[in-house]
Design a protein around this nucleic acid. Sequence first.
DNA 1: TGGTGATCATAC
DNA 2: GTATGATCACCA
Length: 225
Amino acid sequence: MSEKQTTPQSEAELMSLCRNIAGQSLQQLADSVNWTVPPDLRRDKGWIGQLLECLLGTSAGNLSEPDFVNLGIELKTIPLNSNYQARETTYVCTVPLLNNIGLQWQDSCVFKKLSRVLWLPVEANPDIPLSQRKVGNGFLWSPGEDNMDVLQTDWEDFMELISLGQVESITAHQGEYLQIRPKAANSSAITTGIGSNGLRKQTLPRGFYLRTAFTNQILHQNFKI
DNA sequence: TGGTGATCATAC
DNA sequence: GTATGATCACCA
């Protein structure tokens, strides 16, 4: 197989593709589509995610839509350390800094992307060479009511600060499940936001991320080794 | 040593 | 620049 997988037409079909790749190394999976495994991820940070998108047949491209558009499912990899815990936070989407007056939680990009997620754990212990790291058993997840309430509260608190021109006062220490951190090519990148005087102001683009404590909770409840 | 702030690649 | 995919790397 050297072409991208056709997009699955059902959750069952998607999970079948998942079972086929579970337990395989990144080398084996890359070979199956004639991709080359980079020496490390330093200059290829999104490589694993893109490889798995290819193998599972995502269809969104770089549209702001869930990866499997027809199924409404977002694909997220989880890098696991040697104790099967998440090594990194999970990027969700860009923080809207403008024109967000009246934006409701149910219409937010965070809500849309997290409503249904295919989590795909991948070994990420730095002691294991990239090519030898194995993909785990993917699982479908939707936030329960309790989780959804916390996410909504976090989101609403952040969006209130932003609409009040306080975006530059937000640090990654805030938020219970969500956090806001820079999401840009570098610290010189700029986008338009609202300043403390209520006027437009150039500022660093930021993204919503899920804390590892939250993704670890999801892992423990759903991931079978 | 873990979490926050910074950064990397690529398409358009 | 914005979107996609994330991990790096430094410092408290």
